[in-house]
Design a protein around this nucleic acid. Structure first.
Length: 515
RNA sequence: GGCCCGUUCGUCUAAGGGCUAGGACACCACCCUUUCACGGUGGUGAUACGGGUUCGAAUCCCGUACGGGCUACCA
């Protein structure tokens, strides 16, 4: 065999945001798989987004997508914002190119002009609607009954074009042909052209539809691989025919159709998230038209590392029992052939588990920034970063979401404003009061202020007074933090420091007495 | 309706003709811990159904059922 120079892989992901904006889990996973594959092949990762300045889209949709990718660490090498050698990347700036290819298809007899108005199309659908065919298609069975350059006399077509009557260009699908291709995930998939309709390629406004744009762009941008959602499978025959007519089937990129991500009932939707209380977007998105907020994984308290990890495992695994992967490991181990062909239901509980594992796994230093932001939002200034690091180390095992850090550690920065007296009062007595008074005197004289010393002294005093330490630890906890929560009491006291610990005990003793 | 894709514990999945169908989440019990977690040990729980092929099928083939997607001058 001969060693050929490796062909530069150019992996492309292409999509449009929903008209209301946002970027859902399925879209995000498509980006991720394309990214992983591109990096693994040491190729380029290219992002194509439909022009979002069209009226059907909402403002800010494009920036939002790039922000999400930046947060998740999936930035493309080439895109409408990052640039590249194959621009322009905006569809509106490529109009003449699309037009040329569409005209070429007409000239070669693979496409035709259609002058039908919306009303005429509607009328056709009503007219040909039958029991067995509830949604008639514009296909070989009826194209000759419509107003297009195939059914009209040549002069009439010419006249209509000269009069600038609005028209679209439709592909002329062959009547009877079997089309098949090799999907990287599913193997051979085939279709019968008899049931494929004459899709519009060029719209009346001169813009291409997805079908034309994806083929022309992929060719001109030298795309070698493209993974997209399963919902595109039915239109694959149209794209294959366009490749055949325009550039040759040997030029076609390799395709993989990814399974859908399912919600509790059917395809995962924004509504599912709202209904069941879990995020479906990477980051918060507010629809500027309606003001409706859709919560994101980031703001919900997810780490990007966990987000990538859980997304990758939703429909793929490496065959081992490993579930926690860094991005580098994913790049290394990902294989498109191992992606499942069946859809996967999203499980929020498992998603949270991934985040918990990542919080436990990452060193405190890596969590510092998001925790700082969290506390800043709650109006708490963090003075000493090293102190916060030790606090993070102490509590991170019990935090599932980043937002849990507030609940788990706010008392280090603010003394309790009220006490869970119900947990102390019933068993409170003079002896315990005296014990804590003695504890304060002991702690004031303590030379070493560390958890082990504090615990020893605490237990010694308890023994001398013939008290069970167990009965004193809960009151002690409540004195320091106000309730039944937080890490080990002596760890808390050690971090609070001598002065603050003694102040909190004394204040609590007063509060208990007054009750 | 038509076309396409799919189907292993409740969920994500492993097993590519051959061990008692393995792991993870969730759930339950116990241990650890006098807060809550983490952690540890164990448990409940699945090859959609029916036919073939085969010495042998979760695995290959056919049918049925069920689920999903598409069926726009949206992507």
């Amino acid at each position: 065999s001969v060693d050929l120079p490796p062909m530069n892989k150019r992996v492309r992901v292409r999509f449009a945001p929903s008209p209301t904006g946002g970027l859902h889990l399925g879209g995000m996973r498509t980006v991720l798989y394309n990214y992983l594959f591109a990096k693994q092949q040491k190729g380029d990762f290219i992002l194509r987004i439909e022009d979002t300045d069209q009226s059907r889209y909402v403002a800010g949709a494009e920036d939002y997508i790039f922000n999400c990718l930046e947060w998740a660490g999936l930035e493309p090498n080439e895109s409408v914002v990052h640039g590249g050698e194959y621009g322009p990347y905006r569809q509106s700036e490529r109009k003449t190119t699309y037009h040329q290819y569409a005209e070429q298809l007409v000239k070669d007899g693979h496409a035709y002009y259609a002058f039908d108005t919306t009303e005429e199309l509607e009328k056709m659908r009503q007219e040909f609607k039958t029991e067995s065919q509830p949604s008639p298609q514009y296909d070989h069975t009826i194209r000759m009954k419509m107003r297009n350059s195939l059914s009209l006399p040549e002069e009439e077509t010419k006249r209509l074009l000269e009069k600038a009557i609005p028209y679209v260009i439709r592909i002329k699908i062959p009547e009877k042909e079997t089309i098949s291709f090799q999907d990287l995930i599913r193997g051979e998939v085939s279709f019968d052209t008899a049931v494929v309709d004459d899709k519009v390629l060029l719209k009346a406004d001169g813009m291409p539809t997805y079908h034309l744009a994806v083929v022309v762009d992929d060719y001109l941008m030298k795309i070698t691989h493209a993974f997209r959602g399963e919902e595109w499978l039915p239109s694959a025959p149209v794209h294959i025919l366009l490749w055949k007519y325009l550039f040759g089937l040997d030029q076609m990129p390799a395709w993989a159709h990814l399974p859908l991500i399912l919600g509790p009932s059917g395809k995962l939707s924004k509504r599912d998230g709202a209904k069941y209380g879990f995020p479906v977007f990477a980051m918060n998105w507010t629809d500027p038209k309606t003001g409706e907020l859709t919560e994101g994984f980031k703001e919900k308290g997810f780490l990007p590392e966990a987000f990538i990890n859980l997304l990758a495992l939703l429909g793929w695994n490496d065959g081992s029992e490993q579930e926690i992967f860094t991005k580098d490991e994913l790049v290394d181990k990902f294989s498109i052939e191992r992606v499942h062909s069946g859809g996967a239901k999203f499980d929020y509980e498992k998603a949270k588990w991934f985040n918990h594992e990542w919080i436990k796994k990452l060193p405190a230093g890596a969590l510092l920034e998001p925790v700082k932001v969290l506390f800043a939002e709650k109006g708490i200034d963090i003075p000493d970063l090293n102190l916060v690091k030790s606090i993070i180390s102490l509590v991170k095992d019990r935090c599932t979401l980043l937002t849990d850090f507030y609940e788990q550690s706010h008392f280090f920065f603010k003394p309790p404003v009220q006490y869970d007296l119900g947990a102390v009062k019933p068993k409170w007595n003079e002896t315990k009061q005296l014990f804590f008074a003695e504890l304060v005197r002991n702690y004031e004289l303590a030379g070493h202020w560390d958890a082990a010393t504090l615990e020893n002294n605490f237990k010694e005093i308890a023994a001398v007074n013939e008290l069970k330490p167990g009965e004193l630890m809960l009151p002690f906890r409540i004195m320091l933090v106000g309730g039944k929560f937080g890490p080990g009491v002596f760890d808390i006291a050690a971090i609070l420091g001598k002065e603050e610990t003694i102040v909190r005990i004394s204040q609590a003793l007063d509060a208990f007495k007054n009750e």
